[in-house]
C-alpha cells in the first residue's frame, strides 16, 4: 500500500534541536544592595549551573552584560544616526545577561532554565525566545541578490 511507504513524524521531529535565546533580566538596584556574601553565592551557583548546562551540550553561548548605565543606543532620526547614553528603555529590570540554549522543545527549555540559580537567588527573570529559523528566508534572499545567470 502506498500509505506504508510514508514515514510520519511524531509531533515534532527530533532530528533537530531548537535554539532558544534566554534573556536574563535583573533589578540592578537590588543587586547593588545585596551583601558581598550574597553576591558571591549568586555568582558561584550561576557559574556552576552554566558549567553543567555546557557539559550537557545545552549552553552553546552566552555573556553577562555590564550594567545598563554603560549601554549606548543608536537610532535613525530623520536622516542620520543619533547616539544616546543608556539602554533602549529605562525599566526597573534591565537585561543582565544572555544565553543561547539548545533544547528539544519549549518544555525542555523551561525545565533547564527553571533550575537556573539566578531565579532563586537574584529575584530576576528569564525571557525565553525561540531563535527564528532564517534558513528558508536566507535562501530566498540569496536568490534575489544573486546576479541572473541567463539573459532572455
Amino acid at each position: 500500500m502506498v500509505l506504508s511507504t510514508f514515514k510520519l513524524s511524531t509531533f515534532y521531529p527530533i532530528y533537530k534541536q531548537m535554539k532558544y535565546i534566554c534573556l536574563g533580566y535583573i533589578d540592578e538596584k537590588a543587586w547593588g544592595k545585596m551583601s558581598r556574601d550574597g553576591q558571591n553565592t549568586f555568582v558561584d551557583e550561576c557559574f556552576a549551573y552554566d558549567e553543567e548546562l555546557r557539559k550537557n551540550g545545552h549552553f552553546i553561548g552566552g555573556e553577562g552584560l555590564q550594567e545598563s548605565g554603560n549601554a549606548t543606543t543608536l537610532r535613525w532620526r530623520g536622516d542620520k544616526v543619533t547616539v544616546t547614553d543608556g539602554p533602549f528603555a529605562e525599566t526597573k529590570e534591565q537585561l543582565g545577561g544572555i544565553m543561547i540554549l539548545e533544547a528539544t522543545d519549549l518544555n525542555h527549555a523551561i525545565r533547564l532554565m527553571s533550575n537556573h540559580p539566578s531565579l532563586r537567588l537574584g529575584g530576576g527573570s528569564w525571557e525565553i525566545r525561540p531563535a527564528a529559523d532564517m534558513s528558508a528566508i536566507l535562501e530566498e534572499s540569496e536568490q534575489r541578490r544573486s546576479p541572473r545567470k541567463e539573459t532572455s
Binding site: K7, S9, E140
Partner: peptide, 28 residues
Amino acid sequence: MIDRMRRQSKFGPMQAKHTERLTSDAAD
C-alpha cells in the same frame, strides 16, 4: 494531508521543508 502537502511542496522551500519534516522519520 500528506498528499496535499506533497502537491503544495513545489510552491516554495518553506512548504518543502514542512513536507520533508512530515514524511521523515518515526514509525507508521
